[in-house]
């Protein structure tokens, strides 16, 4: 990319692994800031938006998606080598995403169910968050990421400070917004108490329970909350499925899912999940 500017701008890359493109789209959805950002950063790699390509080096690279093929595994190491700061964006990159639910089940069975000739499909047995493979300097959570948090991240990068991304429960934002607790007032199960805020407590504002887009907050007490779901009349499987969303592979949601047996094909899931979690089951045990 050619820039006329004389001062060097930070070089930004946006790369994608296994994902839906929604987090990258959040960058393009910053209608009010996009052009201003483009004037302050050199967007050297962002295939969804520009035909200019670069393999690095990058001052900052935003990585969307989880690592789920051998090529992506190579790619993420390459990107890490080329990037000063690597920021993962979204639930796929930070927690594995919805596709990481396959980590609980038998990969080959999954593959065979969708493709008639699974032997041609090259994918890793699991879909993993980026931080399982390379060092990550910062993360933006969410499915998708929140536009205000993205602006905060970019502003922090440009002004040389750390982004202000508070780690508190969705409940904190929900109560500041003056919403009525859907769990207490309507008996709707809600992951808000164990989920990190960032969405602005969206779902309770739409009369439904939080489904965990931003993943577990610090010290998430999932066992107390699952007991409460069950006492609200949900079966353990239903309670487990609530955790099995877009960040279900993140601890401690992962444990809750296994414990409650809430994922379909639980007989497969139990053993597979134990293996995925390194519980010491023989890796050749089942496939």
């Amino acid at each position: 990319m050619i820039r006329a500017a004389t001062t060097p701008h930070p070089r930004l890359g946006v790369v994608k692994l296994a994902s839906c493109d929604g987090c990258q789209l959040t960058l393009l959805n910053l209608e009010d800031e996009l052009l201003a950002i483009a004037e302050r950063l050199d967007i050297v790699e962002f295939p969804e938006a520009t035909s200019h390509r670069s393999n690095g080096p990058y001052d900052v690279v935003l990585v969307e998606g989880s690592v789920s093929t051998p090529e992506q595994l190579e790619q993420i190491h390459e990107v890490r080598r080329e990037a000063k700061l690597l920021v993962t964006i979204g639930a796929c990159a930070t927690a594995g995403g919805i596709q990481a639910l396959r980590n609980f089940a038998d990969h080959d069975a999954f593959r065979a169910a969708v493709y008639a000739h699974p032997e041609y499909i090259e994918s890793l047995a699991t879909a993993q968050p980026v931080a399982d493979y390379v060092k990550v300097d910062a993360e933006l959570r969410g499915c998708p990421i929140n536009a205000a948090q993205l602006v905060e991240l970019v502003t922090a990068l440009l002004t040389g400070r750390r982004p202000n991304l508070p780690d508190e429960a969705v409940c904190a934002a929900c109560k500041r917004a003056g919403r009525v607790c859907v769990m207490v007032a309507q008996g709707i199960p809600c992951l808000g108490p164990v989920t990190m805020t960032g969405c602005g407590a969206l779902c309770p504002g739409y009369s439904r329970g939080c489904y965990g887009c931003f993943g577990p907050r610090e010290q998430a007490n999932v066992s107390s909350l699952s007991r409460q779901f069950i006492s609200l009349g949900r079966s353990p499987q239903e309670a487990g499925r609530l955790f099995a969303g877009f960040t279900g592979y993140a601890e401690p949601y992962r444990d809750a899912i296994v414990e409650l047996g809430g994922l379909p094909g639980a007989s497969l899931a139990g053993e597979r999940a134990h293996r995925a979690m390194g519980a010491g089951v023989n890796a050749e045990g089942k496939s």
Binding site: C171, A172, K175, R176, G192, P193, N221, S224
Partner: peptide, 13 residues
């Protein structure tokens, strides 16, 4: 603490 979610709802309410 085994029950408490540290969700902050009590302090907000």
């Amino acid at each position: 603490a085994e029950r408490c979610l540290a969700c902050t709802n009590c302090t907000a309410a």
